[in-house]
Every structure is written in C-alpha cells, then in structure tokens.
C-alpha cells in the first residue's frame, strides 16, 4: 500500500518534467478541404514529429470553433494507447480552429508531515488546499495546443482572442502556407503584443533524418515574426515563457505555452 502510494506520487511528480521534454500536438488529416467534408485529427504527445510513440494527448478541454464563431462537437472520439482521435465535420465554409486549452493551477504542500500534490482552478484552490498548508508551492499554467482547417475560402473569425495566455494572430492565414514563401504571424500575451518571444518551428518527419532541423525566430516589438517555409509538409510550432502574472497571489510563477501544427503546401 505504502509503495503503491509512493510510486504514484513519483509518477505524478514526473509528469510536468515529461511535458517539457516531449512535444504535444494535434495533427489533422487535411487542412485545405471543400465544404461539407470531414477531417480526422490525432492528438498525441511524442518525441518524434509526427509519430505516435509516447502517450495520447488528453482532449478533455478540446474546443472546436467554427467559422461563424459557434462551438462544434468532435465526433467519433476514440482513445488509443498512443493517441486520441476525433473527427470534425466541416459543415460551414471557412476556417475552423481546433484547440486544446490547458489552464490551471498546481500545488505542492505538506499536511501532517505528508507531501501532497494538488491540481485545480483558482476557484477550487481556496476550498481544497488548506489555508495553513506548509511549504506551499503553487504554479499556474496557461497552455494552448491548436491547429487550423479550412473548408473553401480562409476566414479569420475563429481566431477571436480570449486575451489569456499566448495566442496566435494570423497575418498570413495559417491555411494559406506554401513552400518557399514567407509567412508572417503575431503573438499576443494576454491580448497584448508578445515582443521578443523566442519561437521554435520543427518540420515533421523527424524519424527519417538525423537532426531536428529547428528554425528559431524571435518576435519583434509588435509581436510579429516571419518564416520562409523551406519545404512542403507538416510543421510544429512552439512558443513558451514564464512570468509572474498569476491569477491568485499564492501562485508565484505562471508558465505560458503555445503549440500549433501547420501544413505547408507545395507550389
């Protein structure tokens, strides 16, 4: 009993570490389609892009925004050993945003000499974590993992900002990307331009080459960055930062993360 508890605690303790080392992603079966078609999406956490070699990405907080701003339910949801999958019916003309949002607090503390770990929301924190908890360490995370799919003509209504965490603003539309052409995007942090933010872009297909071939760029004063796509294919993009803009005073640190999958088409 005791060993079991210990091992599960160890496992939990390792989780945040694991999420740093691995790549999270949503991979759509197509990004440019005609209206009334379907796409199927894989959700996974892996070392290699885009292969299912580690664990599925949880999709409890999946949010699919239709071109008209409404929320669409995923269909045929499946849970696998290495990936979760779901289908999206593209009934409307325009761009759909498919996003997994991870917003929450995590805490470590001691109660009666026992080390405890807690996860929850700012609302549940006061109720569930004892006010006199010893050695309390609280951190907040705001993460977004997304991809975009367009039926017909690309639109931008689904990009409505939530003004929380890192969000991508399309200058070039993410479903209008072509090899050898330059694309420009902007990042906002809590709705304001995210200047000087490092952004990492990795082309898919890493299993069949010896290096990651990362492309590193940094946003300018307006939060903008540009990239010229070296070849057609699927690309993984990540930006992350840490700050102290937490929603409760007990949390000293906030981790903000953004991941997106883009498809770059041949000319």
């Amino acid at each position: 009993m005791r060993t079991l508890k210990l091992s599960s605690l160890l496992l939990l303790g390792l989780l945040p570490l694991a999420s740093h080392a691995h790549k999270t992603w949503l991979l759509p079966s197509a990004t440019v389609v005609t209206v009334d078609q379907w796409v199927t999406v894989d959700a996974a956490v892996s070392n290699n892009l885009f292969y299912f070699d580690h664990v599925p990405l949880r999709i409890d907080t999946l949010e699919i925004t239709a071109p008209d701003g409404s929320t669409v339910k995923p269909e045929n949801v499946g849970a696998g050993k290495y990936r979760n999958t779901f289908d999206v019916h593209l009934a409307q003309n325009g761009t759909y945003r498919i996003a997994v949002k991870n917003i929450g607090l995590s805490a470590f503390y001691e109660e009666n000499g026992q080390r405890k770990r807690w996860r929850g929301t700012p609302e549940s924190f006061a109720k569930e974590v004892p006010a006199d908890a010893a050695n309390l360490q609280v951190s907040e995370s705001v993460g977004r993992i997304e991809t975009f799919v367009t039926a017909g003509k690309p639109t931008t209504t689904a990009f409505k900002l939530t003004n929380r965490g890192l969000e991508l603003v399309p200058v070039t539309h993410p479903n209008d990307l072509y090899a050898d052409e330059e694309a420009t995007f902007a990042f906002v942090l809590d709705g304001k331009p995210a200047a000087n933010l490092p952004v990492t872009i990795v082309p898919g297909g890493t299993r069949y080459r010896d290096s990651q071939n990362e492309i590193e760029v940094t946003t300018d004063a307006d939060g903008r960055f540009s990239i010229t796509w070296p070849a057609p294919g699927m690309y993984w993009l990540e930006a992350r930062l840490e700050d102290s803009k937490t929603s409760i005073p007990q949390a000293k640190q906030r981790r903000v993360n953004y991941v997106a999958t883009f498809e770059v088409l041949p000319q």
Binding site: V32, V33, T34, Q37, G152, K153, P154, D176, Y178, L265, P266, Q267
Partner: peptide, 18 residues
Amino acid sequence: GTQWLKDLRQWWRRGGRE
C-alpha cells in the same frame, strides 16, 4: 466530385476556393 477540386492546388489557392 467537388470534394477533389482542391487538388487543382494552384487554381484552388488563386481563386477556385472562392
């Protein structure tokens, strides 16, 4: 047959999709 019109990739991009 309209579902494969996007495979006329250049035409689709330049205006077919509209």
